[in-house]
Design a protein around this nucleic acid. Structure first.
Lengths: 124, 124
DNA sequence: TATACTGTATTAGTGTATTAATACAGATAG
DNA sequence: CTATCTGTATTAATACACTAATACAGTATA
């Protein structure tokens, strides 16, 4: 697994796991791989994985059961809220950063649409 | 000045200064505020500001002159490239994160357009 | 019951971001 | 020349992210 510099690894792990849950790669109510398995999968230390899981536990996305494992919530609402939160936060920063480059709304929308369009062309 | 957690302050300072240059808040060829002035402005340590300026120097965005100050390049090409780089990198991460949430291109474009539109409405 | 899984906690060592204090070198205005 | 700006470098102290090793507690199963 490859991590970006300058962002704490435990946050990147939290991010990846959250996305896997939202995209249904991990099913709601199911069990996560164990801390030690995840550590191997991410080529990270167990403590680092633990730190990611701790935050997800605090946000009620997963629930740990001593001796058994970590289980993903079955509450769809929590997951939907998390997705909403992630997307909105991303749009907020993207939009504000573009504005700070002196781009107006029209330019912002146009350049993003153009970007996606160009990516499409490459994948054909 | 307010900084985000989990991203090194020196990178946030570099980011802000770069945006000020791109948006012409600081004019090409002109002199930056001194290291000590910037430190006060950002409520940060001189060394932290220095670390940001060091990177910008390495990227030829500014040029230091001992005893005089730091001067912004007059080379418009360098600035244009920097802007292009910043925007592309931002779109890359935004796009890929949305894809990892199982959204297709149509949904991605639609939801971003919708986001900007809604922000517009709030500002009217 | 013993083994091998789970989560959890602790300790120690390394690297780096940040701050603070200080010093030095070059430029410039009085 | 001197005072005061500039950039630059160094040192020490603190905090935190990360790793490694180890131990303990709860669960499941052969």
């Amino acid at each position: 697994m490859h991590f970006v510099d300058n962002i704490p690894i435990y946050l990147q792990i939290k991010d990846i796991l959250s996305r896997r849950i939202i995209s249904n790669e991990y099913e709601l109510g199911s069990q996560l791989p164990s801390v030690r398995q995840l550590a191997v999968q991410f080529s990270a230390n167990s403590n680092t994985v633990q730190k990611a899981l701790k935050e997800m536990t605090d946000e009620h996305i997963i629930t740990p059961q001593r001796g058994k494992g970590n289980f993903i919530t079955s509450d769809e609402e929590i997951i939907d809220e998390m997705k909403e939160h992630i997307v909105t936060e991303m749009f907020d920063t993207t939009y504000e950063k573009l504005r700070s480059l002196n781009m107006n709304d029209q330019e912002i929308v146009a350049s993003f649409n153009n970007y996606v369009k160009k990516r499409d062309e490459k994948n054909e």
